Amino acid sequence: MSGEGRGATLPALTGARWLAALVVFAHHAGIAGYLSGDAQRFLVAVGGAGHVGVSFFFVLSGFVLSWSVRPGESATSFWRRRIARVVPLHLVTAVAALALGLTMARTLGPRDETGGWPATFANAGLLSSWIPSWSQAGNPVSWSLVCEAFFYALFPMAARAIGRCHRRGAWTGLALAGLLAVVCAVVIDVSPGDLSRMPLLRLPEFVAGLTCARLVRLGAWPTLRPRWALFLVLVCWVGASLLPNAYAGFLATLPGFVALIGSLGHHQFSGQLVDGVDGRSGLARWLSQRWLVRLGEWSFAFYLVHVLVMRVLEHTLISHPGWSLLPGSALLLAVLLVSVALAGGLHHAIEAPANAWIRGRTRPRSPAPDQLLR
């Protein structure tokens, strides 16, 4: 693989995005209590560490933005592209959460315990998570977008610094990101409140993705088969599920996520550099299947909408039903399918057209590398 190659797309990472969104869904489904007995215990065991899927998004965000950086692009142009990609769908789902909270799903509305109306407006402006007690205001999952907005603000400066790094500097940057993640874990652990959604304390995960992409570009990433990186993720996942502190779970899975994203990027990029030859690994090839990539493209909308579906069900039909395996699984599947259907509709009706309009295009085009984000 030649270093500094450009122009290759990485659909396997888009497919992986869907799997990360799915484990977040499993985590929230476990909390919703659709099942009972052994089935519920199994779902909680599988999805108990599902909250770390957000950590995967942060690492992937750094990787993809670093990978797709446009030489000579101004900071203003970059920020405009990111606003086009994120803000329209965020605002639509924030308004939907507010409307539902004021009518049929009161836990989505402005409440004193989540900061009331000030926190709701701060959430719409992607600022709420800077105050820990406000992090669940509005659409509860959008706290991660507040973190992403902070990452975007820093990215032009970070991209220039990392873009000047050679192999040793990039490895040093990755090591520093890991060290800072440990420091953040300690800070969160000793703090009286829950700071795990504070944007500044989630920055090391994003930086790890940035430096990982730089190493892949330089041809310095180890030739690790993606299936072994996936095995490392599973080992880390088990460790995360055994840790009581939320951020300790994120910290436990960080090595596995970096290894998997770097490995998928390395193998797929290497394969695309061979003229007309698909040199990708089996896992990268499987993740690049058309249907999985399509779901990956919908994953941002799915992430934003699935908790709204669960809350509406909780407040209007049935709350924590605790059903046996067959009816509980049917209910779980129905919630999943409704969420996927809404995500597809929102992607095609709101996300893609708004993105195209803000960018000044007449129609959406096929996803560029930077559209892998989320």
Rank of each mutant, 00 (worst) to 15 (best):
L313K: 14
P226R: 00
R106F: 09
L201T: 00
V64L: 14
L203Y: 01
G53E: 02
G125W: 14
M157N: 09
A170T: 05
L174G: 07
W298S: 08
N123V: 09
S142M: 10
W79H: 15
G101D: 05
L102P: 06
P321Y: 08
G193V: 04
H51F: 10
H320Q: 15
Y152G: 02
P321E: 12
G262T: 00
V141M: 06
P204G: 05
L126F: 11
E4M: 05
G360A: 10
S129V: 06
P353E: 09
A137I: 07
L203A: 06
F257S: 04
A181N: 11
A213C: 10
F206R: 01
L251Y: 12
A75H: 13
Q268I: 00
G72L: 07
G53I: 02
A97L: 07
R214P: 10
P71M: 11
A20Q: 00
T103N: 06
V24W: 01
W291S: 11
A75S: 14
A122F: 11
H348D: 08
S288I: 11
R167S: 07
T103I: 07
E73W: 04
S66V: 06
A284Y: 07
G37M: 02
A32W: 09
I358A: 10
S66R: 05
W117R: 03
V23T: 12
L203F: 11
M1A: 07
G322I: 13
M198D: 07
A124R: 10
W134I: 13
S144W: 01
L98Y: 08
V86R: 13
A96M: 14
A341H: 05
A175D: 11
S366P: 05
H266R: 14
W237F: 08
P367E: 04
R70Q: 15
W357K: 14
P199G: 03
G193Y: 04
C184S: 15
L126P: 13
G15T: 00
V307G: 11
L200V: 06
G173M: 09
F302Q: 03
A170K: 13
A284M: 10
L346H: 03
S55L: 06
A29P: 04
L287F: 07
H266Q: 14
S135A: 12
R168N: 12
L215E: 07
R17E: 00
D189G: 09
W134E: 03
R225L: 15
R164S: 08
H306W: 05
V146R: 02
R160Q: 08
I162D: 06
S129F: 02
A8N: 02
P353K: 12
N245F: 13
I188D: 01
